[in-house]
């Protein structure tokens, strides 16, 4: 695998309101390598710096010190800004803030129009993007008639149409109901698996992080953990101390382990939890 995004010793401070205040340093030396094709979750409590980190990935913000490179291009290089933004697309929390057009397919075409893509190719890319998020049948609908989950999928289609190498999603399911959440997670995983798009998912939902290949935990502007989800969630005490949580399956196993039952601490899915408990009971009976 090769590295798509290199974050090297990045610090970032928001400017002070006036001269009496100190600038607030949000990121305090972060280094991360994101490989091509990875599905990475970023966890952290409110104010940990994870959204700031996301905005550094496609040059919405620039590091105060250190560097961010996308496919070898430094985000401070203004001449490459267009290329960088085309490679790394962003999806935000509130779908209503990201949808600009009155018809779904026009919204998906918005960025392509700005890029000056040829109309025939535009048609092809819009259709392909809408099919990828399974919203093709709604292409002629007005966005306000859609559910939150559907709107968020349209926002994702708008990014896909630009054919990026990487999508960064900042809490894309926070405003959705369970059904909408499932739809969006399924879409994200499919884009990663079938289209090879690198995905960086910032989330507060531990169950969503458990579905990723890698989990990065940001705490007070630093990388606190960076590992497969099984390893990260097995540290139940540390996660809670940071102000995060673990899937309920992991917590249940953890409570039984504390009571002395020999169970695998790296259980993070419902299925594995049920299997382990069934096994435990069959040994006892």
């Amino acid at each position: 695998m090769e590295s798509l995004i290199s974050i090297r010793d990045v610090r970032f401070a928001y400017a002070a309101g006036d001269e009496t205040e100190q600038p607030t340093e949000v990121l305090k030396g972060i280094s991360l390598e994101i490989q091509k094709g990875e599905l990475v979750a970023v966890l952290g409590h409110n104010g940990s710096g994870k959204s700031t980190l996301a905005k550094l990935l496609n040059a919405i913000l620039l590091p105060t010190s250190g560097s961010v490179q996308v496919d070898g291009m430094d985000t401070t290089d203004e001449a490459r800004l267009f290329d960088i933004r085309q490679r790394v697309g962003m999806v935000f929390q509130n779908p209503d803030n990201q949808i600009v057009a009155t018809i779904v397919e026009e919204d998906v075409a918005f960025a392509l129009e700005n890029m000056g893509v040829d109309p025939d190719e535009m048609r092809e890319r819009v259709d392909e993007a809408l099919k990828a998020v399974k919203m093709y049948d709604f292409r002629e609908h007005a966005p306000h008639q859609l559910s939150g989950g559907q709107k968020q999928r349209v926002a994702i289609a708008g990014i896909i149409a630009m054919r990026p190498d990487c999508i960064v999603l900042d809490e894309p399911t926070a405003m959705l109901d369970p059904q909408g959440r499932r739809e969006v997670m399924k879409t994200i995983k499919r884009l990663n698996r079938d289209y090879g798009i690198t995905v960086i998912l910032i989330t507060h939902e531990m169950d969503e992080a458990a579905q990723c290949q890698r989990v990065v935990v940001i705490d007070h502007g630093m990388v606190r953990m960076d590992d497969v989800p099984e390893k990260v969630f097995s540290k139940v005490g540390e996660m809670k101390q940071i102000g995060l949580d673990v899937p309920q399956a992991t917590e249940l196993i953890h409570m039984l382990r504390e009571a002395g039952y020999p169970l695998d601490p790296e259980i993070i899915t419902e299925e594995a939890c049920v299997d382990a408990l069934t096994e435990l009971f069959s040994q006892k009976s």
Binding site: G44, H45, N46, Q93, E171, A174, M175, H204, M206, G243, L244, D245
Partner: peptide, 8 residues
């Protein structure tokens, strides 16, 4: 609680 972290 929408949009808050687990502790919040």
């Amino acid at each position: 609680t929408a949009g808050l972290d687990p502790k919040g």
